[in-house]
Design a protein around this nucleic acid. Structure first.
Lengths: 145, 145
DNA sequence: AGGATTTAAGACTATTTTATCTTATTTTAT
DNA sequence: ATAAAATAAGATAAAATAGTCTTAAATCCT
């Protein structure tokens, strides 16, 4: 069951890495992240560009440049990132792929799926990057293979 | 959010169609199903082949042949179909795509995702084709676009 | 000023998924 | 027997996703 695209998974891992890294400079180079997490540099760059456009990150070129959070990671929730990378309609899908599935013209599993994806949405709305980073450092979790 | 592949979605829609159709002969031709539900004939044929191999369906060639349930639709649950079409490990995925994610080496969202996919699995385990077909006919739901 | 470093942007390639097409094989009815 | 109806199987094509490469632009440092 593949729910999130590679771009999204890589983006989230990278953001957690950034949130985890409390250095003197807020800027972290994409090169460092891609090396540490073993993610294609150019692929990650492309993903980060959209996050920069949408105001999640800010970027700075040149030596010792990189990307940094444009908002504190406490205020960035998974849903913000997912919506940017996967698209706005991410939580409106029909499990059976019927276009326009909804209360008016539901599919046979609409009721269940509405609840299931709703739970997922709520979780994404309440989980911040800072919260995840905190969990990772406390419990020594991994964010790469 | 695309959870199920086209092959799986088409397969499920087609099976519901079959469960819905209480004709004199248990055999329904794939040609009819593909036409009624607007699904590529050959694509559906390929999907049905694996369901036949795994004992969900039985097939009969020749004029007035087709496919029929090898077990009563009351005894066929969504999970049976999904596991055949999507693969055995469908409910073991990691949301962040980390290989070997589990209790021993969990990812940061493992706890949540374990619960979410568990709920989905339970729903699939308890929903039969007959149950869905019944719901469709009672509530006049649609199974095609 | 000039070279090194880093993101930005877009073209290009590869892989996977989805869909179609073609040909064979099996079965039934006449 | 023969024709018709259906599945079986594999080659091929199209589309979506994932990943790579190249060039440009910005910034810093000496």
């Amino acid at each position: 069951m593949k729910v999130l695209s590679k771009a999204c998974v890589y983006g989230l891992r990278a953001l957690i890495y950034m949130a985890l890294k409390k250095g003197d400079s807020p800027y972290v180079s994409i090169g460092e992240i891609s090396e540490e997490l073993d993610i294609s540099f150019h692929f990650l760059t492309k993903t980060f560009q959209s996050l920069t456009e949408k105001g999640i990150l800010k970027s700075y070129r040149g030596p010792s440049g990189g990307v940094a959070f444009a908002q504190p990671p406490e205020a960035i929730f998974l849903i913000d990132v997912v919506k940017i990378i996967e698209g706005e309609g991410f939580f409106d899908s029909c499990l059976l792929g019927l276009p326009g599935c909804g209360e008016a013209a539901p599919c046979p599993v609409h009721d269940f799926w509405k609840e299931a994806r709703g739970a997922m949405k709520r979780e994404f709305e309440t989980t911040s990057l800072a919260g995840l980073a905190d969990k990772v450092s406390r419990q020594r979790l991994r964010i790469s293979e």
